[in-house]
Amino acid sequence: MASQGTKRSYEQMETDGERQNATEIRASVGKMIDGIGRFYIQMCTELKLSDYEGRLIQNSLTIERMVLSAFDERRNKYLEEHPSAGKDPKKTGGPIYKRVDRKWMRELVLYDKEEIRRIWRQANNGDDATAGLTHMMIWHSNLNDTTYQRTRALVRTGMDPRMCSLMQGSTLPRRSGAAGAAVKGVGTMVMELIRMIKRGINDRNFWRGENGRKTRSAYERMCNILKGKFQTAAQRAMMDQVRESRNPGNAEIEDLIFLARSALILRGSVAHKSCLPACVYGPAVASGYDFEKEGYSLVGIDPFKLLQNSQVYSLIRPNENPAHKSQLVWMACNSAAFEDLRVLSFIRGTKVSPRGKLSTRGVQIASNENMDAMESSTLELRSRYWAIRTRSGGNTNQQRASAGQISVQPAFSVQRNLPFDKPTIMAAFTGNTEGRTSDMRAEIIRMMEGAKPEEMSFQGRGVFELSDERAANPIVPSFDMSNEGSYFFGDNAEEYDN
């Protein structure tokens, strides 16, 4: 993207840094990872977990959730003011799984939030270390993106479920800051804005008074975040219109849905970061690795190297396929839920299948599930090659597409044709070009129609051997075009429920 120079890199967003050079960025990201790792080690000690239990991804998720809940100030305040039966607002906890007599047992633990905050700050040299908290939120978000298709949420806001490739980060909490905003897809931002506008339509006082002023500035800020994701002048001009509207209503909703559809071809720039579970960072720190000293990046080879040398386990339900569970977590670790499966298959070195073909449910185990038949197995999170994460949407291309997802959002900077089903997408653009945004709409449609099938995206960008740390010898991959490109292809993934 041309304006790259004016933006802070995501590592800076990730670490609240002012302008830093590459070495400083690597050190501050490393410091953040160190903090998460030290916190995780301490929690495993508190909970008396064995090494194996500490490497269980379900335990990692519970521990991450506990610290996120302990620092969720708004919710904590709300819980104190609106006490609900049987919930102690000062405590947080969740299921911890232990191996007892050759069987997995679930144990519900409860801790004072104050105590968890103390352990977290102690692991982070006394700081609140917001960057580390956001990092864990993005890992949870990436896992949700890989596990669930947001059909219901899309339909509720009037969008087409086939636009799911635009929904990265749709389950990120509001408090995820600049680093969170960077990884949100165009569809996620559109959905947040539509929800806001709908509230304004239904509630006369939404934009009024002292609160209304705050609401208005939040609305304009979200519009600017979305505008910054678009790469064409016409899309940005249309966002200006939406932002400046005196009284946002149905016309703005129409414009936003139009823009979301246009992003299936004229893709937005959305950041991709490899955020790993805390149970990967903990053992690495415990083994003596100093992330701050060595430096770390979320968008280069580092996460690949770390996963190459990590042992992570997962509980497996009786009829689940461990290899499929591994694929789910591998995609989440690489922030690749909406990437082209052919690119992923090449990088991973084994075939990556669409969601609907995987015999696996989510990673988390519900409290009512029976533990008797639970097994555990090693997650295979290694890769054959590594590639640089991208934040450009890439230019655009036609490809055989599917009944489910009709476009992709690249996660890796790797040369390819970008699949999208042009006739299906263009069919949504018939007729409606009147109104105050008509010239911009016409211009956007013209650009979409001009998108050429034979153009290559990320020209000359390749993948790298894991021994090639400096990215000196790019390998331009070859793809098996007979395979499906979309992950949520004609899909039956479970729906995400809060």
Rank of each mutant, 00 (worst) to 15 (best):
L226W: 11
Q20G: 00
Y313Q: 14
K77S: 13
Y97H: 08
S392V: 08
N473G: 00
E192T: 08
M136F: 10
P89E: 02
I225N: 13
P95D: 12
M239Q: 05
S84F: 00
A233H: 11
E443C: 01
E46A: 03
K357C: 09
Q398H: 15
V280P: 03
G5S: 15
H324M: 03
R75F: 08
G17V: 02
G490Y: 06
D51L: 13
L344M: 07
M66H: 07
N144Q: 10
G169Q: 05
I96W: 07
A178W: 02
A218P: 04
R382L: 09
A366R: 02
Q405S: 11
C275V: 12
Q399C: 10
K357L: 04
R317G: 00
D160E: 14
L315C: 13
P453D: 12
A27D: 00
T188F: 03
M32V: 14
A179W: 04
F412L: 15
N432Y: 08
E484L: 00
L166A: 07
I347K: 08
N321H: 13
S69F: 04
R26H: 09
S176L: 02
G37R: 01
A251S: 04
D160W: 12
P477M: 04
R162G: 11
S297G: 09
K198Y: 08
E369K: 08
M440Y: 15
Q308F: 13
Q327M: 09
Q241V: 04
R317M: 03
G30Y: 03
S176Y: 05
K98L: 13
G93C: 02
Y40K: 01
D302Q: 14
T433M: 06
M238F: 04
R195Y: 08
S345A: 09
A472P: 13
G94H: 08
Q42G: 12
A411S: 15
D480I: 02
L381I: 06
R441S: 13
Q122V: 15
G169L: 07
E11T: 06
Q235K: 13
S269G: 06
G126L: 15
R121I: 08
I425D: 07
D439F: 00
A278R: 03
D127F: 12
I194Y: 03
R156P: 06
L259I: 13
N76E: 14
V414E: 01
E465C: 00
R213S: 05
Q122Y: 02
F71M: 01
L379E: 06
P89R: 02
M137P: 09
I33M: 15
M374S: 02
Q122E: 04
D340Y: 09
D421P: 00
L276V: 12
E80F: 12
G485T: 04
P173R: 06
A373Q: 02
D497T: 11
S141A: 07
N397G: 01
E220C: 04
S69G: 14
L143W: 12
N492G: 09
E244C: 05
T396Y: 11
L154W: 07
M440N: 09
K103A: 14
L276T: 04
E18M: 00
Q241W: 06
E18D: 14
E73M: 05
F39Y: 13
E107V: 10
D101E: 13
N205P: 03
N395P: 02
E339G: 05
A401T: 03
R221D: 03
S269C: 12
R436A: 02
M456I: 01
L418G: 00
E210F: 11
W104A: 06
E454K: 13
T433D: 02
E339M: 08
H135F: 12
K452W: 01
M1V: 07
V29Y: 02
N309P: 01
R261Q: 13
G30R: 05
P161C: 04
E81V: 14
D160Y: 07
T424A: 14
R118L: 14
V155H: 03
D128R: 06
A263L: 04
D372K: 03
S28Y: 01
P474I: 03
S478L: 13
Y496F: 15
Q235R: 03
Q415T: 03
G282S: 11
L61F: 09
A332Y: 06
I347S: 10
C333H: 01
K77N: 14
E484I: 14
D128L: 12
I57P: 09
E369A: 04
A472Q: 09
Q235N: 03
E443P: 02
M238E: 08
G86I: 01
Y97I: 08
Q398N: 03
K113M: 07
A85T: 14
E380K: 09
L381G: 02
K227H: 09
A401I: 00
P277H: 08
S486T: 14
E18K: 05
P453V: 07
G249I: 08
L341A: 10
D145Q: 06
M447I: 15
N59W: 05
D240E: 11
S376K: 09
Q364R: 01
M191N: 07
V312F: 12
P354Y: 13
A263F: 02
R38G: 13
D491M: 11
I33A: 15
S383I: 00
K305Y: 11
T232H: 14
A234M: 05
Q398L: 15
I406P: 05
D203Q: 06
L79E: 07
Q231C: 07
P477K: 01
G185C: 07
V242D: 11
S353F: 09
D480Y: 14
A251R: 01
A85F: 06
E455L: 14
N417S: 09
V183Q: 05
F346A: 13
M105I: 11
G295F: 09
A471P: 00
L381F: 12
P453W: 14
E220T: 08
D480A: 14
L110S: 03
S392M: 05
S28T: 06
Y111S: 13
E107N: 13
Q122L: 14
G200C: 04
R446Q: 04
W139N: 08
G460W: 05
S60P: 02
R174T: 12
N498M: 13
L110G: 03
G490T: 01
K103D: 03
L307R: 03
R8G: 06
Q4F: 15
G180C: 03
F230Q: 07
W139D: 05
L379M: 15
Q42D: 04
E73A: 09
N498V: 08
P95R: 07
N21G: 01
K113P: 02
D497C: 10
S376N: 14
Q12C: 10
S383E: 00
D497G: 14
R102F: 14
D127L: 15
S335H: 05
Q149E: 04
G268L: 02
Q4H: 08
L68H: 14
M13H: 03
V312R: 00
R26K: 15
Q241M: 08
E254V: 07
E454W: 06
M222H: 06
R355A: 09
L259R: 03
M136W: 01
K77I: 14
R461Q: 13
A403W: 00
M222L: 01
I225M: 11
E210G: 11
K422M: 13
R461H: 05
F488Q: 04
L306W: 08
S314H: 04
L154P: 01
E455D: 12
S69A: 12
S176H: 08
N417A: 03
D255I: 08
S359W: 09
W104T: 09
A337S: 12
G485W: 14
S402M: 01
A366W: 06
R342K: 14
R246L: 02
R261I: 07
S9I: 07
M13P: 00
Y10D: 07
D491V: 12
T151Y: 02
D497M: 13
S141N: 06
E252F: 06
L341D: 08
V190K: 00
R384N: 14
A373I: 04
R317C: 07
R243A: 08
W120H: 09
M43P: 02
S486G: 02
F458A: 00
S478K: 09
R19T: 07
A387L: 00
V463H: 05
G228E: 14
E434Q: 14
A182P: 03
M447A: 06
R391Q: 07
A129L: 12
M331S: 09
F458L: 13
G209M: 07
R152F: 09
A182W: 10
A22M: 00
K305N: 09
I36Y: 00
T151N: 03
V352F: 07
D88Y: 00
Q399T: 10
E339S: 00
N250C: 14
G212I: 11
K98M: 11
D72T: 12
V414P: 00
P322A: 13
D480G: 06
L143C: 14
G209P: 03
P423S: 13
K422N: 13
V352N: 05
N498Q: 10
S407N: 14
M196Y: 02
E449M: 08
